[in-house]
Design a protein around this nucleic acid. Structure first.
Length: 423
RNA sequence: GUGGGCGUAGCUCAGCUGGUAGAGCACCCGGUUGUGGUCCGGGAUGUCGCGGGUUCGAGCCCCGUCGCUCACCCCA
């Protein structure tokens, strides 16, 4: 028999690490919920043209990283490489933007990009994202950034950095583009660079090769070409962020890989992740809705890489103690005790406690070992004596102390409730 | 698409200039009657990624192949 392996480059989470993954994802979502964002559950595949139009055909994501195939009806289908285009499609299709604005939604799930895998970069990866649609004021920009920042902080991350810039409105970008192209003409660009310059001259700011960085040293920066509206908006965003106590640095050379970004854009960078250091990023996309056939509404959102945030938490060792263990682990010592324990455990589980019991016939010692490994707060041995007297000793597994209790679900529940967090 | 590193027990790895494999951790059993974590004793486990070649003999050398990994590119 040949052994099956997972497709190349996918990220998989199984115990015990999957528990950390779950914690990370939930904590990233939590501040969005508290800020009034609601779940939107979207398909993982869409009409290929949606991404070509929404993300931009000139982007690397669309031009060479999409999983595209023909379905049985001859339609061209693509596994979603990012979340915003699909979210906009759904908002337009389901008329979510016809009510009160802004529309505030969040999503999470797998995304797909056919890239060469490396540390922190997978072909199937997980993102949590939010979108706020139909409201163009700087307050919402700050809110979106706060939600991401708050999620990271709730995971006790401290070493990441927030970089922001503004891509300005269309008029600002047009005037800068002329200057930048003039500048680039004077540079001895290699073939690859000039190809990229043609597609999107801003991309050259993102090049990591030293000679290109050197050459771009004196290139005109977009941020210096913002018109009054764009400048005012960006200044306001910075001011509010400061008021919210969120620290950031301005990175005028920041480039985002998706074509729809306008105005405020931002990126969260974590320095301990190796080459793929972006743990989340996003920005405003004021032309996207109309581009996709909807009404001309502005929007802003972010995507956070759950895989990478988990890696960051591991690098900072920030969440190991958040894993929730069993409250009670029951060790039955014979067949009758097993029946009794199965019922008891079921009752306590229904009352909201995390309970497990020893399986098989490993004896008392084996059962206690299993209790230890489960990380349970308390262990309870059940045998003849306990069943006859309907009472037993709850052993505190960290102190070794024994506390006797009646073995009814309600008595045990009352006892456990004093020790269990977030019941 | 381009380059580097690596593939040996469940995991992390060691294995000298070629003589057919080891450690730690994990796992299981035990240290006498119903209480885990420490300690002590015992135990199971490998087609040394796969295929071919050189050799009396290959985990170690050569060729191929598959896989993993890191970096470029790009991005979450």
């Amino acid at each position: 028999m040949t052994k099956f392996l997972a497709p190349k480059g996918v990220s998989e989470y199984f115990p015990p690490r999957s528990e950390l993954f779950e914690i990370v994802r939930d904590r990233l979502i939590s501040p969005a919920k508290r800020a009034g964002y609601s779940l939107i559950e979207l398909p993982v595949f869409e009409d290929t043209a949606l991404f070509e139009r929404g993300v931009g055909e000139s982007t690397d994501v669309v031009s060479k990283e999409m999983y595209t195939f023909e379905d049985r009806g001859g339609r061209s289908i693509t596994l979603r490489p990012e979340g915003t285009a699909g979210a906009m499609r759904s908002v337009i299709e389901n008329n979510l933007d016809k009510g009160q604005l802004p529309v505030k939604i969040f999503y999470s799930g797998p995304f797909f990009r056919a890239e060469r895998p490396q540390a922190g970069r997978y072909r199937q990866f997980y993102q949590v994202g939010i979108e706020a649609i139909g409201y163009g004021d700087p307050e919402i920009d700050a809110e979106v950034i706060w939600i991401a920042d708050s999620g990271f902080k709730s995971l006790s991350l401290s070493k990441y950095e927030l970089q922001i810039t503004s891509l300005g409105d269309e008029a600002s970008r047009a005037s800068h583009r002329v200057e930048l192209i003039n500048f680039l003409k004077k540079l001895p660009l290699d073939e690859e660079s000039s190809r990229r310059a043609k597609v999107n001259p801003l991309r050259l700011f993102d090049d990591k090769r030293p000679e290109v960085i050197e050459a771009m040293q004196d290139a005109p920066l977009l941020i210096n070409y913002l018109n009054k509206d764009s400048t005012d908006h960006f200044e306001k965003v910075k001011k509010i962020l400061s008021q919210l106590g969120i620290s950031f640095t301005i990175n005028p050379k920041m480039v985002r890989g998706l074509d729809y970004y306008t105005g405020t854009t931002f990126e969260f960078i974590h320095p301990m992740l190796g080459s793929q250091s972006g743990i989340g990023g996003g920005g405003r996309y004021d032309g996207l809705m109309s581009q996709l056939g909807g009404s001309d509404l502005s929007g802003i959102g972010f995507g956070i890489g759950v895989d990478r945030v988990l890696m960051a938490c591991e690098a900072e060792n920030s969440i190991a103690d958040l894993v929730k263990a069993m409250d009670l682990f029951v060790v039955p010592i014979d067949e009758i005790a097993k029946e009794f324990s199965t019922k008891l455990v079921k009752d306590l589980r229904e009352l909201g406690f995390a309970c497990d019991l020893a399986y098989g016939n490993r004896g008392l010692k084996g059962g206690m070992k299993a209790a230890d490994k489960s990380g349970a707060t308390f262990a309870l041995v059940v045998g003849d004596d306990e069943i006859k007297s309907n009472s037993g000793n709850l052993k505190n597994m960290s102190t070794g102390e024994n506390i006797s209790s009646t073995l009814t679900p309600s008595a045990l529940a009352t006892f456990l409730a004093n020790f269990v967090r977030d019941l």
